[in-house]
Nucleic acid binder design. Structure first.
Lengths: 242, 242
DNA sequence: ACAAAACGAGAGCATCGCTCTTACAACTCA
DNA sequence: TGAGTTGTAAGAGCGATGCTCTCGTTTTGT
Protein backbone atom coordinates (compact mmCIF):
# COMPACT_ATOMS: atom_id res chain seq x y z
CA UNK A 1 0.00 0.00 0.00
CA UNK A 2 2.49 2.52 1.14
CA UNK A 3 4.47 3.77 -1.84
CA UNK A 4 7.51 3.79 0.38
CA UNK A 5 7.71 0.02 0.32
CA UNK A 6 8.48 0.13 -3.36
CA UNK A 7 10.49 3.28 -3.33
CA UNK A 8 13.66 1.56 -4.43
CA UNK A 9 11.98 -0.35 -7.17
CA UNK A 10 10.02 2.67 -8.36
CA UNK A 11 13.16 4.72 -8.55
CA UNK A 12 15.00 1.96 -10.39
CA UNK A 13 12.34 1.56 -13.03
CA UNK A 14 11.90 5.28 -13.26
CA UNK A 15 15.52 5.77 -13.95
CA UNK A 16 15.33 2.97 -16.49
CA UNK A 17 12.64 4.78 -18.41
CA UNK A 18 13.88 8.21 -17.53
CA UNK A 19 17.31 7.35 -18.76
CA UNK A 20 16.26 6.80 -22.34
CA UNK A 21 14.08 9.85 -22.02
CA UNK A 22 16.98 11.97 -20.86
CA UNK A 23 19.13 10.55 -23.62
CA UNK A 24 16.54 11.39 -26.27
CA UNK A 25 16.08 14.86 -24.81
CA UNK A 26 19.79 15.39 -25.02
CA UNK A 27 19.90 14.14 -28.60
CA UNK A 28 17.08 16.44 -29.62
CA UNK A 29 18.88 19.47 -28.28
CA UNK A 30 22.05 18.32 -29.97
CA UNK A 31 20.40 17.94 -33.36
CA UNK A 32 18.61 21.23 -32.80
CA UNK A 33 21.90 22.94 -31.99
CA UNK A 34 23.28 21.62 -35.26
CA UNK A 35 20.35 23.04 -37.18
CA UNK A 36 20.68 26.28 -35.27
CA UNK A 37 24.31 26.53 -36.30
CA UNK A 38 23.55 26.10 -39.98
CA UNK A 39 20.14 27.71 -40.41
CA UNK A 40 19.89 30.16 -37.54
CA UNK A 41 17.15 30.49 -34.99
CA UNK A 42 14.52 31.34 -37.56
CA UNK A 43 15.20 28.20 -39.54
CA UNK A 44 15.06 25.83 -36.63
CA UNK A 45 12.17 23.48 -37.29
CA UNK A 46 10.82 20.77 -35.03
CA UNK A 47 9.87 18.73 -38.07
CA UNK A 48 13.39 18.87 -39.44
CA UNK A 49 14.81 17.81 -36.10
CA UNK A 50 12.38 14.92 -35.96
CA UNK A 51 13.20 13.97 -39.54
CA UNK A 52 16.91 13.92 -38.82
CA UNK A 53 16.29 11.67 -35.85
CA UNK A 54 14.04 9.29 -37.73
CA UNK A 55 11.07 10.24 -35.64
CA UNK A 56 7.74 11.66 -36.55
CA UNK A 57 7.23 15.32 -35.74
CA UNK A 58 4.55 14.79 -33.14
CA UNK A 59 6.87 12.62 -31.07
CA UNK A 60 9.09 15.60 -30.33
CA UNK A 61 6.27 17.15 -28.38
CA UNK A 62 6.64 14.43 -25.77
CA UNK A 63 9.95 16.02 -24.89
CA UNK A 64 9.46 19.70 -25.64
CA UNK A 65 5.92 21.02 -25.41
CA UNK A 66 6.63 23.72 -27.97
CA UNK A 67 9.27 25.12 -30.24
CA UNK A 68 9.91 27.93 -27.80
CA UNK A 69 10.74 25.45 -25.07
CA UNK A 70 13.36 23.90 -27.29
CA UNK A 71 14.78 27.33 -27.95
CA UNK A 72 14.81 28.06 -24.24
CA UNK A 73 16.83 24.91 -23.66
CA UNK A 74 19.29 26.04 -26.30
CA UNK A 75 19.47 29.47 -24.70
CA UNK A 76 20.33 27.93 -21.35
CA UNK A 77 22.99 25.84 -23.05
CA UNK A 78 24.37 28.95 -24.68
CA UNK A 79 24.61 30.84 -21.41
CA UNK A 80 26.37 27.92 -19.84
CA UNK A 81 28.79 27.59 -22.73
CA UNK A 82 29.69 31.27 -22.49
CA UNK A 83 30.03 31.01 -18.76
CA UNK A 84 32.30 28.02 -19.13
CA UNK A 85 34.70 29.60 -21.60
CA UNK A 86 34.80 32.69 -19.40
CA UNK A 87 35.66 30.62 -16.36
CA UNK A 88 38.35 28.72 -18.22
CA UNK A 89 39.91 31.86 -19.66
CA UNK A 90 39.97 33.47 -16.24
CA UNK A 91 41.56 30.41 -14.70
CA UNK A 92 44.51 30.47 -17.10
CA UNK A 93 45.66 33.88 -15.84
CA UNK A 94 47.59 34.70 -12.69
CA UNK A 95 45.04 35.79 -10.11
CA UNK A 96 46.79 39.06 -9.46
CA UNK A 97 46.88 40.30 -13.04
CA UNK A 98 43.40 41.70 -13.16
CA UNK A 99 43.56 43.51 -16.47
CA UNK A 100 44.95 40.40 -18.11
CA UNK A 101 42.15 38.32 -16.66
CA UNK A 102 39.60 40.81 -17.94
CA UNK A 103 41.07 40.79 -21.44
CA UNK A 104 41.30 37.02 -21.46
CA UNK A 105 37.64 36.74 -20.56
CA UNK A 106 36.69 39.30 -23.22
CA UNK A 107 38.64 37.44 -25.85
CA UNK A 108 37.25 34.07 -24.85
CA UNK A 109 33.68 35.28 -25.07
CA UNK A 110 34.32 36.95 -28.41
CA UNK A 111 35.97 33.84 -29.79
CA UNK A 112 33.07 31.72 -28.70
CA UNK A 113 30.63 34.17 -30.26
CA UNK A 114 32.50 34.15 -33.56
CA UNK A 115 32.55 30.35 -33.52
CA UNK A 116 28.87 30.08 -32.62
CA UNK A 117 27.27 33.16 -34.16
CA UNK A 118 23.73 31.83 -34.24
CA UNK A 119 23.88 30.61 -30.68
CA UNK A 120 25.23 33.98 -29.61
CA UNK A 121 22.45 35.72 -31.50
CA UNK A 122 19.94 33.50 -29.79
CA UNK A 123 21.28 34.43 -26.38
CA UNK A 124 22.27 38.08 -26.71
CA UNK A 125 20.41 39.09 -29.85
CA UNK A 126 16.83 40.11 -30.24
CA UNK A 127 14.38 37.73 -28.59
CA UNK A 128 13.13 35.53 -31.38
CA UNK A 129 9.37 35.01 -31.67
CA UNK A 130 6.58 36.39 -29.52
CA UNK A 131 9.26 36.05 -26.89
CA UNK A 132 9.19 36.07 -23.15
CA UNK A 133 11.79 36.28 -20.44
CA UNK A 134 11.97 32.69 -19.23
CA UNK A 135 13.00 32.50 -15.60
CA UNK A 136 15.12 29.42 -16.18
CA UNK A 137 17.67 31.54 -18.01
CA UNK A 138 18.58 33.97 -15.25
CA UNK A 139 20.78 31.52 -13.39
CA UNK A 140 22.98 30.51 -16.32
CA UNK A 141 23.01 34.11 -17.50
CA UNK A 142 24.75 35.15 -14.31
CA UNK A 143 27.53 32.60 -14.73
CA UNK A 144 29.76 34.65 -17.02
CA UNK A 145 28.92 37.83 -15.15
CA UNK A 146 30.07 36.18 -11.96
CA UNK A 147 33.50 35.59 -13.47
CA UNK A 148 33.77 39.23 -14.39
CA UNK A 149 32.46 40.36 -11.03
CA UNK A 150 35.11 38.34 -9.28
CA UNK A 151 37.87 39.98 -11.27
CA UNK A 152 36.68 43.43 -10.28
CA UNK A 153 36.00 42.62 -6.66
CA UNK A 154 39.31 40.76 -6.34
CA UNK A 155 41.08 43.82 -7.66
CA UNK A 156 39.12 46.08 -5.37
CA UNK A 157 39.76 44.06 -2.26
CA UNK A 158 43.44 43.87 -3.12
CA UNK A 159 43.50 47.63 -3.38
CA UNK A 160 44.66 47.34 -6.98
CA UNK A 161 41.80 49.24 -8.54
CA UNK A 162 42.88 52.61 -9.94
CA UNK A 163 39.72 54.51 -10.72
CA UNK A 164 40.02 56.78 -13.72
CA UNK A 165 38.27 59.56 -11.89
CA UNK A 166 36.54 60.90 -14.95
CA UNK A 167 33.04 59.70 -14.13
CA UNK A 168 30.42 61.60 -12.18
CA UNK A 169 28.98 59.68 -9.23
CA UNK A 170 26.25 57.21 -10.17
CA UNK A 171 22.65 58.30 -9.67
CA UNK A 172 21.08 57.79 -6.27
CA UNK A 173 18.51 55.49 -7.76
CA UNK A 174 21.31 53.08 -8.51
CA UNK A 175 22.17 52.48 -4.87
CA UNK A 176 19.63 49.73 -4.29
CA UNK A 177 20.63 47.83 -7.42
CA UNK A 178 24.27 48.25 -6.52
CA UNK A 179 23.57 46.70 -3.15
CA UNK A 180 22.03 43.64 -4.75
CA UNK A 181 24.93 43.29 -7.17
CA UNK A 182 27.42 43.72 -4.34
CA UNK A 183 25.96 40.75 -2.55
CA UNK A 184 25.80 38.53 -5.60
CA UNK A 185 28.82 39.18 -7.78
CA UNK A 186 30.79 42.19 -6.58
CA UNK A 187 31.44 41.76 -2.85
CA UNK A 188 32.87 44.80 -1.20
CA UNK A 189 32.90 47.11 -4.18
CA UNK A 190 31.51 50.64 -3.78
CA UNK A 191 28.68 51.91 -5.92
CA UNK A 192 30.78 53.81 -8.43
CA UNK A 193 32.94 50.78 -9.11
CA UNK A 194 29.85 48.66 -9.60
CA UNK A 195 28.37 51.16 -12.01
CA UNK A 196 31.59 51.34 -13.99
CA UNK A 197 31.85 47.57 -14.07
CA UNK A 198 28.32 47.25 -15.38
CA UNK A 199 29.08 49.75 -18.12
CA UNK A 200 32.17 47.77 -18.97
CA UNK A 201 30.20 44.56 -19.15
CA UNK A 202 27.55 45.96 -21.48
CA UNK A 203 30.24 47.53 -23.65
CA UNK A 204 31.77 44.11 -24.11
CA UNK A 205 28.60 42.66 -25.51
CA UNK A 206 27.85 45.78 -27.46
CA UNK A 207 31.17 45.33 -29.18
CA UNK A 208 30.63 41.67 -29.96
CA UNK A 209 27.09 42.26 -31.16
CA UNK A 210 28.14 45.11 -33.42
CA UNK A 211 30.80 42.94 -34.97
CA UNK A 212 28.62 39.86 -35.32
CA UNK A 213 25.55 41.65 -36.57
CA UNK A 214 27.41 43.43 -39.32
CA UNK A 215 27.68 46.97 -37.99
CA UNK A 216 31.45 46.94 -38.46
CA UNK A 217 31.18 45.92 -42.10
CA UNK A 218 33.29 48.27 -44.21
CA UNK A 219 34.26 50.10 -41.05
CA UNK A 220 36.81 48.03 -39.18
CA UNK A 221 39.09 45.49 -40.79
CA UNK A 222 41.30 44.19 -37.97
CA UNK A 223 38.45 43.61 -35.60
CA UNK A 224 40.36 41.46 -33.14
CA UNK A 225 42.91 44.19 -32.52
CA UNK A 226 40.31 46.93 -32.25
CA UNK A 227 38.27 44.78 -29.92
CA UNK A 228 41.22 44.19 -27.61
CA UNK A 229 42.07 47.87 -27.62
CA UNK A 230 38.54 48.99 -26.81
CA UNK A 231 38.16 46.41 -24.08
CA UNK A 232 41.45 47.55 -22.57
CA UNK A 233 40.12 51.11 -22.51
CA UNK A 234 36.90 49.97 -20.89
CA UNK A 235 38.85 48.00 -18.33
CA UNK A 236 40.79 51.11 -17.42
CA UNK A 237 37.58 53.06 -17.14
CA UNK A 238 36.48 50.52 -14.56
CA UNK A 239 39.80 50.98 -12.79
CA UNK A 240 41.68 47.91 -13.87
CA UNK A 241 45.39 48.76 -13.95
CA UNK A 242 47.63 47.72 -16.78
CA UNK B 1 11.11 56.89 -83.49
CA UNK B 2 13.54 58.44 -81.12
CA UNK B 3 12.36 57.96 -77.55
CA UNK B 4 13.51 61.48 -76.86
CA UNK B 5 10.60 62.95 -78.84
CA UNK B 6 8.22 61.53 -76.30
CA UNK B 7 10.37 62.10 -73.30
CA UNK B 8 7.88 64.42 -71.69
CA UNK B 9 4.94 62.21 -72.34
CA UNK B 10 6.80 59.10 -71.33
CA UNK B 11 7.69 60.70 -68.06
CA UNK B 12 4.16 61.89 -67.49
CA UNK B 13 2.58 58.51 -68.17
CA UNK B 14 5.29 56.77 -66.25
CA UNK B 15 4.63 58.88 -63.27
CA UNK B 16 0.94 58.13 -63.74
CA UNK B 17 1.50 54.43 -63.36
CA UNK B 18 4.49 54.75 -61.11
CA UNK B 19 2.58 57.01 -58.79
CA UNK B 20 0.02 54.44 -57.80
CA UNK B 21 2.80 51.92 -57.63
CA UNK B 22 4.79 54.12 -55.30
CA UNK B 23 1.72 54.78 -53.24
CA UNK B 24 0.95 51.09 -52.92
CA UNK B 25 4.56 50.33 -52.06
CA UNK B 26 4.43 52.93 -49.36
CA UNK B 27 1.17 51.57 -48.01
CA UNK B 28 2.56 48.05 -47.91
CA UNK B 29 5.53 49.13 -45.86
CA UNK B 30 3.24 51.12 -43.61
CA UNK B 31 0.95 48.18 -42.94
CA UNK B 32 3.99 45.97 -42.51
CA UNK B 33 5.46 48.40 -39.99
CA UNK B 34 2.22 48.20 -38.05
CA UNK B 35 2.39 44.44 -37.98
CA UNK B 36 6.04 44.63 -37.05
CA UNK B 37 5.20 46.83 -34.10
CA UNK B 38 2.60 44.46 -32.74
CA UNK B 39 3.91 41.04 -33.70
CA UNK B 40 7.62 41.50 -34.11
CA UNK B 41 9.79 40.59 -37.03
CA UNK B 42 9.07 36.90 -36.74
CA UNK B 43 5.34 37.45 -36.96
CA UNK B 44 5.41 39.68 -40.00
CA UNK B 45 3.50 37.86 -42.71
CA UNK B 46 3.04 38.88 -46.31
CA UNK B 47 -0.35 37.23 -46.34
CA UNK B 48 -1.50 39.22 -43.34
CA UNK B 49 -0.32 42.43 -44.93
CA UNK B 50 -2.16 41.56 -48.11
CA UNK B 51 -5.27 40.66 -46.15
CA UNK B 52 -5.25 43.95 -44.32
CA UNK B 53 -4.97 45.77 -47.62
CA UNK B 54 -7.74 43.79 -49.28
CA UNK B 55 -5.34 42.28 -51.75
CA UNK B 56 -4.50 38.72 -52.51
CA UNK B 57 -1.16 37.51 -51.20
CA UNK B 58 0.42 36.95 -54.58
CA UNK B 59 -0.16 40.56 -55.53
CA UNK B 60 2.34 41.70 -52.90
CA UNK B 61 5.07 40.00 -54.86
CA UNK B 62 4.60 42.56 -57.62
CA UNK B 63 6.03 45.10 -55.19
CA UNK B 64 8.40 43.12 -52.99
CA UNK B 65 9.94 40.03 -54.55
CA UNK B 66 10.26 38.34 -51.17
CA UNK B 67 9.58 38.76 -47.50
CA UNK B 68 13.22 39.61 -46.92
CA UNK B 69 12.99 42.51 -49.32
CA UNK B 70 10.10 43.91 -47.34
CA UNK B 71 12.15 43.53 -44.18
CA UNK B 72 15.05 45.28 -45.85
CA UNK B 73 12.79 48.20 -46.68
CA UNK B 74 11.71 48.34 -43.05
CA UNK B 75 15.33 48.23 -41.94
CA UNK B 76 16.15 51.19 -44.14
CA UNK B 77 13.18 53.04 -42.69
CA UNK B 78 14.39 52.20 -39.20
CA UNK B 79 17.86 53.54 -39.86
CA UNK B 80 16.38 56.71 -41.25
CA UNK B 81 14.05 57.12 -38.30
CA UNK B 82 16.93 56.75 -35.86
CA UNK B 83 19.04 59.11 -37.88
CA UNK B 84 16.26 61.65 -37.87
CA UNK B 85 15.65 61.65 -34.14
CA UNK B 86 19.40 61.90 -33.63
CA UNK B 87 19.60 64.90 -35.93
CA UNK B 88 16.69 66.60 -34.24
CA UNK B 89 18.03 66.00 -30.75
CA UNK B 90 21.41 67.37 -31.75
CA UNK B 91 19.84 70.43 -33.29
CA UNK B 92 18.06 71.39 -30.07
CA UNK B 93 21.35 71.85 -28.21
CA UNK B 94 23.75 74.78 -28.32
CA UNK B 95 26.45 73.83 -30.77
CA UNK B 96 29.24 74.46 -28.29
CA UNK B 97 27.93 72.19 -25.53
CA UNK B 98 29.31 68.98 -26.88
CA UNK B 99 28.62 66.71 -23.92
CA UNK B 100 25.06 67.93 -23.83
CA UNK B 101 24.65 67.24 -27.52
CA UNK B 102 26.05 63.74 -27.04
CA UNK B 103 23.69 63.00 -24.17
CA UNK B 104 20.74 64.39 -26.06
CA UNK B 105 21.48 62.14 -29.01
CA UNK B 106 21.89 59.13 -26.72
CA UNK B 107 18.61 59.82 -25.02
CA UNK B 108 16.80 60.40 -28.28
CA UNK B 109 17.97 57.13 -29.73
CA UNK B 110 17.11 55.26 -26.55
CA UNK B 111 13.67 56.83 -26.44
CA UNK B 112 13.04 55.87 -30.01
CA UNK B 113 14.21 52.33 -29.33
CA UNK B 114 11.93 52.01 -26.32
CA UNK B 115 9.02 53.34 -28.36
CA UNK B 116 9.76 51.04 -31.32
CA UNK B 117 11.35 47.97 -29.78
CA UNK B 118 10.64 45.63 -32.66
CA UNK B 119 11.94 48.06 -35.22
CA UNK B 120 15.05 48.57 -33.15
CA UNK B 121 15.51 44.82 -32.88
CA UNK B 122 15.16 44.54 -36.61
CA UNK B 123 17.86 47.11 -37.19
CA UNK B 124 20.37 46.51 -34.40
CA UNK B 125 19.39 43.03 -33.29
CA UNK B 126 20.41 39.76 -34.76
CA UNK B 127 19.95 39.56 -38.52
CA UNK B 128 16.66 37.77 -38.94
CA UNK B 129 16.65 34.99 -41.54
CA UNK B 130 19.53 33.45 -43.47
CA UNK B 131 20.63 37.06 -43.41
CA UNK B 132 22.90 39.04 -45.59
CA UNK B 133 24.34 42.53 -45.41
CA UNK B 134 22.17 44.39 -47.92
CA UNK B 135 24.11 47.21 -49.46
CA UNK B 136 21.10 49.51 -49.48
CA UNK B 137 21.33 49.78 -45.71
CA UNK B 138 24.83 51.18 -45.35
CA UNK B 139 23.84 54.68 -46.38
CA UNK B 140 20.98 55.14 -43.93
CA UNK B 141 23.02 53.34 -41.26
CA UNK B 142 25.60 56.09 -41.42
CA UNK B 143 23.07 58.84 -40.84
CA UNK B 144 22.96 58.65 -37.06
CA UNK B 145 26.67 57.97 -36.90
CA UNK B 146 27.26 61.14 -38.87
CA UNK B 147 25.50 63.16 -36.20
CA UNK B 148 27.70 61.68 -33.54
CA UNK B 149 30.82 62.11 -35.63
CA UNK B 150 30.04 65.78 -36.07
CA UNK B 151 29.77 66.29 -32.33
CA UNK B 152 33.19 64.77 -31.76
CA UNK B 153 34.90 66.47 -34.65
CA UNK B 154 33.30 69.81 -33.79
CA UNK B 155 34.64 69.50 -30.27
CA UNK B 156 38.04 68.46 -31.56
CA UNK B 157 38.35 71.27 -34.01
CA UNK B 158 37.25 73.74 -31.34
CA UNK B 159 39.99 72.41 -29.10
CA UNK B 160 37.39 71.45 -26.52
CA UNK B 161 38.19 67.78 -26.38
CA UNK B 162 39.79 66.75 -23.11
CA UNK B 163 41.13 63.26 -23.60
CA UNK B 164 41.00 61.13 -20.48
CA UNK B 165 44.50 59.85 -21.11
CA UNK B 166 43.80 56.41 -19.73
CA UNK B 167 43.76 54.55 -23.03
CA UNK B 168 46.73 52.95 -24.73
CA UNK B 169 47.26 54.06 -28.33
CA UNK B 170 45.05 52.26 -30.85
CA UNK B 171 46.58 49.38 -32.80
CA UNK B 172 48.50 50.17 -35.96
CA UNK B 173 46.05 48.13 -37.99
CA UNK B 174 43.42 50.69 -37.11
CA UNK B 175 45.13 53.52 -38.95
CA UNK B 176 43.65 52.77 -42.36
CA UNK B 177 40.12 52.48 -41.00
CA UNK B 178 40.61 55.64 -39.00
CA UNK B 179 41.59 57.42 -42.18
CA UNK B 180 38.39 56.39 -43.90
CA UNK B 181 36.30 57.43 -40.93
CA UNK B 182 38.13 60.75 -40.72
CA UNK B 183 37.11 61.55 -44.26
CA UNK B 184 33.50 60.50 -43.85
CA UNK B 185 32.31 61.47 -40.39
CA UNK B 186 35.17 62.64 -38.19
CA UNK B 187 37.08 65.30 -40.11
CA UNK B 188 40.33 66.30 -38.51
CA UNK B 189 40.24 63.96 -35.56
CA UNK B 190 43.37 61.94 -34.74
CA UNK B 191 43.33 58.17 -34.60
CA UNK B 192 42.99 57.80 -30.86
CA UNK B 193 40.01 60.12 -30.76
CA UNK B 194 38.40 58.15 -33.57
CA UNK B 195 38.99 54.88 -31.77
CA UNK B 196 37.54 56.23 -28.56
CA UNK B 197 34.55 57.64 -30.41
CA UNK B 198 33.86 54.30 -32.02
CA UNK B 199 34.01 52.59 -28.66
CA UNK B 200 31.61 55.17 -27.34
CA UNK B 201 29.23 54.59 -30.19
CA UNK B 202 29.13 50.83 -29.77
CA UNK B 203 28.72 51.20 -26.02
CA UNK B 204 25.61 53.27 -26.67
CA UNK B 205 23.95 50.54 -28.65
CA UNK B 206 25.24 47.85 -26.33
CA UNK B 207 23.46 49.65 -23.54
CA UNK B 208 20.20 50.01 -25.42
CA UNK B 209 20.29 46.43 -26.64
CA UNK B 210 20.97 45.08 -23.17
CA UNK B 211 18.03 47.02 -21.81
CA UNK B 212 15.68 46.16 -24.63
CA UNK B 213 16.60 42.51 -24.89
CA UNK B 214 16.06 41.88 -21.23
CA UNK B 215 19.59 41.64 -19.87
CA UNK B 216 18.86 44.31 -17.27
CA UNK B 217 15.84 42.47 -15.94
CA UNK B 218 16.11 42.18 -12.17
CA UNK B 219 19.41 44.04 -12.34
CA UNK B 220 18.68 47.71 -12.92
CA UNK B 221 15.47 49.44 -11.96
CA UNK B 222 15.97 53.11 -12.87
CA UNK B 223 17.32 52.38 -16.31
CA UNK B 224 16.98 55.88 -17.67
CA UNK B 225 19.21 57.29 -14.94
CA UNK B 226 21.78 54.54 -15.23
CA UNK B 227 21.79 54.93 -18.98
CA UNK B 228 22.46 58.65 -18.76
CA UNK B 229 25.20 58.09 -16.21
CA UNK B 230 26.96 55.44 -18.27
CA UNK B 231 26.70 57.46 -21.45
CA UNK B 232 28.17 60.45 -19.64
CA UNK B 233 31.11 58.28 -18.56
CA UNK B 234 31.58 57.05 -22.09
CA UNK B 235 31.45 60.59 -23.38
CA UNK B 236 34.21 61.56 -20.99
CA UNK B 237 36.23 58.60 -22.10
CA UNK B 238 36.02 59.98 -25.61
CA UNK B 239 37.12 63.36 -24.30
CA UNK B 240 33.86 65.25 -24.18
CA UNK B 241 34.05 67.78 -21.36
CA UNK B 242 31.21 68.32 -19.01
C1' DA C 1 -5.44 50.61 -83.10
C1' DC C 2 -2.39 47.20 -81.61
C1' DA C 3 1.43 44.78 -79.29
C1' DA C 4 3.80 44.74 -74.97
C1' DA C 5 4.15 45.28 -70.36
C1' DA C 6 2.19 45.50 -65.75
C1' DC C 7 -1.26 43.92 -62.85
C1' DG C 8 -4.74 41.38 -59.64
C1' DA C 9 -6.87 37.08 -58.75
C1' DG C 10 -6.83 32.38 -57.92
C1' DA C 11 -5.15 27.76 -57.47
C1' DG C 12 -1.52 25.14 -55.93
C1' DC C 13 2.98 23.31 -53.70
C1' DA C 14 5.86 22.40 -49.93
C1' DT C 15 6.50 23.46 -45.35
C1' DC C 16 5.60 24.83 -40.74
C1' DG C 17 3.75 24.48 -35.50
C1' DC C 18 0.60 22.09 -33.16
C1' DT C 19 -3.50 18.89 -31.82
C1' DC C 20 -5.96 14.75 -31.63
C1' DT C 21 -6.75 9.95 -31.92
C1' DT C 22 -5.08 5.33 -32.11
C1' DA C 23 -2.15 1.42 -31.44
C1' DC C 24 1.80 -0.52 -29.08
C1' DA C 25 5.08 -1.22 -25.46
C1' DA C 26 6.72 -1.05 -20.78
C1' DC C 27 5.71 -0.94 -16.19
C1' DT C 28 2.73 -1.62 -11.75
C1' DC C 29 0.65 -4.38 -8.71
C1' DA C 30 -2.70 -7.71 -6.90
C1' DT D 1 1.03 -14.57 -14.06
C1' DG D 2 -2.38 -11.57 -15.80
C1' DA D 3 -5.06 -7.25 -15.78
C1' DG D 4 -4.77 -2.42 -15.64
C1' DT D 5 -2.18 1.87 -15.99
C1' DT D 6 0.94 4.84 -18.23
C1' DG D 7 4.45 6.67 -21.35
C1' DT D 8 5.38 6.58 -26.14
C1' DA D 9 5.37 6.67 -31.35
C1' DA D 10 2.76 7.05 -35.40
C1' DG D 11 -0.44 9.02 -38.43
C1' DA D 12 -3.97 12.10 -40.01
C1' DG D 13 -5.35 16.53 -39.93
C1' DC D 14 -5.96 21.87 -39.18
C1' DG D 15 -4.73 26.38 -40.16
C1' DA D 16 -1.22 29.08 -41.67
C1' DT D 17 3.05 30.48 -44.02
C1' DG D 18 6.32 31.88 -48.32
C1' DC D 19 6.39 31.49 -52.88
C1' DT D 20 5.28 30.08 -57.96
C1' DC D 21 2.52 29.69 -61.84
C1' DT D 22 -1.20 30.64 -64.89
C1' DC D 23 -4.93 33.30 -66.64
C1' DG D 24 -7.72 37.06 -67.80
C1' DT D 25 -7.80 42.27 -67.46
C1' DT D 26 -6.08 46.82 -67.53
C1' DT D 27 -2.77 50.17 -68.57
C1' DT D 28 1.07 51.91 -71.40
C1' DG D 29 3.90 53.06 -75.43
C1' DT D 30 4.11 53.56 -80.32
Amino acid sequence: MSPLCYAGRVNASRTARERVRAELTREITEVARGQLATEGAGGLSLRAVAREMGMVSSAIYRYFPSRDDLLTALIVDGYNAIGEVAEQADATCPAGEYARRWLAVCRAIRDWALAHPHEYALVYGSPVPGYQAPQQTIGPAARAATVFGKIISDAWQAGALQPAGICPPPPESFAADAGALRELVLPGAPDDVIAAALGCWTALFGMISFELFGQFENVITDRAAFFAHTMACQGRLAGLPG
